[in-house]
Nucleic acid binder design. Structure first.
Length: 194
DNA sequence: TATGAGATCAACT
DNA sequence: GTTGATCTCATAC
């Protein structure tokens, strides 16, 4: 096995539409726990569904900061969701990590989730946040190329599929959800053509 | 398989 | 007071 290449901050300093598909197949670790990214969604600041669309607030402040950092927010009052900030500083665009295929630290994830089913461990932004132990106090604004985070490039270029985003009420027609084709670990199956 | 309600917090009107 | 980038459990086919 060749040594995997760790992604640095400059990887994220590009358009979310370039970075998002390239994250599919990459490996995300938090304190050594995580796995292969199989599903993400891009949120551009011109997009009505993005948290940054209405301007800077206390919650979304890190979206307006430099790329290569983590943006963590509370969803529906219960879940912590993890985003990667992209593009040049100030553009306030990011990528929501929606699902990973667990490969490292399975026991820790099972313990936090209280589940045995590997497939349901990280198949959704809220589940992923719980399995990786994500919390705003610990991870909001943290660098993605420093501990406890580590992101590694895919070994080979995976087959990627795109589709409309999930769980939002605005701009639902934009096909900015990306996934690993055929993966059983996505939060919801992609509408396959044909 | 599909639909519906509850949980629970912070931003926003 | 309402809404949301969600998940789980219950109930109905």
């Amino acid at each position: 096995m060749p040594k995997p290449k760790q992604l640095k901050a400059n990887f994220f300093a590009r358009s979310v539409h370039h970075v998002a598909p390239e994250l599919i197949g990459a490996t995300l670790l938090v304190d050594g726990v995580g796995g292969r990214i199989v599903e993400v969604e891009a949120y551009h600041h011109t997009d009505p569904a993005a948290h940054s669309f209405g301007g800077r607030t206390e919650r979304n402040a890190v979206m307006f900061g430099p790329p290569g950092h983590a943006y963590v927010y509370r969803s529906y009052g219960i879940h912590w969701c993890l985003n990667f900030i992209c593009e040049p500083e100030g553009s306030a665009s990011g990528i929501l990590i929606r699902a990973i295929e667990p490969t490292a630290g399975l026991p820790a994830m099972r313990r936090r989730r209280g589940l045995k089913d590997e497939r349901l461990l990280c198949s959704g932004p809220g589940r992923l946040g719980e399995a990786l132990g994500i919390a705003r106090a610990k991870h909001n604004g943290a660098r993605l190329d420093h501990a406890p985070f580590a992101v590694f490039a895919p070994e080979a270029r995976p087959e990627i599929i795109a589709g409309p985003r999930i769980g939002i009420s605005k701009a639902t027609e934009l096909p900015w959800r990306y996934g690993l084709k055929g993966s059983k670990f996505v939060s919801k199956r992609f509408p396959e053509a044909g």
